[in-house]
Design a protein around this nucleic acid. Structure first.
Lengths: 200, 200
DNA sequence: CCTACCGATCGGTAGG
DNA sequence: CCTACCGATCGGTAGG
């Protein structure tokens, strides 16, 4: 009896995530992928229907992870600043725990066929709206500056958490929480030394 | 006499930037590119030596634009906050004025051959160092919070200015200066309503 | 800048 | 899961 290994299909998806993220979707051949798993090119088609199915599944799994991480925060009653810190932590953790598929997600989604493409743009709108609503709540609670533009504020937040896929290294010193805490501190409090007597 | 048009080589580079940014480098065939210019595939090779030359030149031109935009700011004597605002403005303007080649730059540089690849990583280190130095100067001047980590602060700034390639639309309402001003305001002052009596 | 072509490689399939 | 193969397309070249 051997150790029960991951289903072959999952192994294929894992290898595809790594190769697609390193070389890009179109620059990875099915024979490259099969070679990683000790197979011949044609043998892959016993487990999958085609190359694009791999891309679709990688992208779908990635967007599902973001959705899951942020969804229940939508109605979280905490103050906006705490909610933002928690959302950034969860968002960055999804990136950090899935560096390969996150990279594929951000780089290759434009190569999807219309149906899968539309799902990604819809996902992007949902996440965008989540952060805009969070900022609006913060303004209404009187915690965030009233002159913030929710759209641009969401853009800035999303820049920070998404761009992490380009530089974060999972084996390094910083955990996703460290990154999120530092980012949240800077974003919330600002880079400038606070001025005495400023404010209302 | 006809209007003097752009040299053919520049037309090829412009079309290549657009196609590479839309479809990706490997998914764009030389016949696609030739078709955009009303040529046959083989005719391109009267003007260029090969496909990778196009990628190398697009990436080199993009990195040169960033270098030029930021270089003379290095020794600018202004306070760090003003310098940061100006650097972000210039950085975002390069992205905004070169959406196609900026996209190619961020997405396709990993597909370069070792020499060109090394130049890009070296560029990235230079820009990284520029922003870290700027943050360090701000701390030393007493203008920025002393507890900032220059590395993470530079990461946050670079996230904001680089990620613009994913959402900025040159024909839209906001100029690069608008974006930079809003981002700089948020980063410098923070999202929170200032607390009365906070600070030293 | 075109026509015609090269060898190589692609995603995918048939049959076992 | 393999062997053997398919038509299509790739980047690039020769000769004009």
């Amino acid at each position: 009896m051997t150790e029960p290994s991951k289903p072959r299909r999952e192994q294929i998806l894992d290898s595809a995530s790594r190769l697609f993220s390193e070389r890009g979707y179109h620059a990875t051949s099915m024979r490259d992928l099969a070679g990683e798993l000790g197979m011949q090119g044609g043998s892959l088609y016993a487990h999958i229907s085609g190359k694009e199915e791999l891309l679709i599944e990688i992208v779908n799994q990635a967007s599902a992870q973001f959705d899951t991480a942020l969804f229940y925060l939508r109605d979280d009653p905490r103050p906006a600043a705490d909610k933002l810190r928690e959302a950034m932590h969860r968002h960055i953790r999804v990136v950090a725990d899935n560096m390969d598929s996150a990279t594929v997600f951000f780089h290759e989604w434009k190569h999807l066929s219309p149906d899968a493409y539309a799902r990604v743009t819809s996902w992007r709108d949902t996440i965008d709206q989540f952060y805009r609503d969070l900022v609006t709540q913060g303004i209404e609670q009187g915690q965030f500056r009233a002159d913030l533009d929710p759209k641009m504020t969401a853009n800035l937040i999303l820049s920070a958490v998404n761009w992490a896929y380009t530089w974060y290294r999972p084996g390094g010193q910083m955990t996703p929480r460290d990154v999120a805490d530092q980012y949240a501190d800077m974003l919330l409090g600002g880079l400038l030394v606070p001025q005495r007597g400023e404010g209302s």
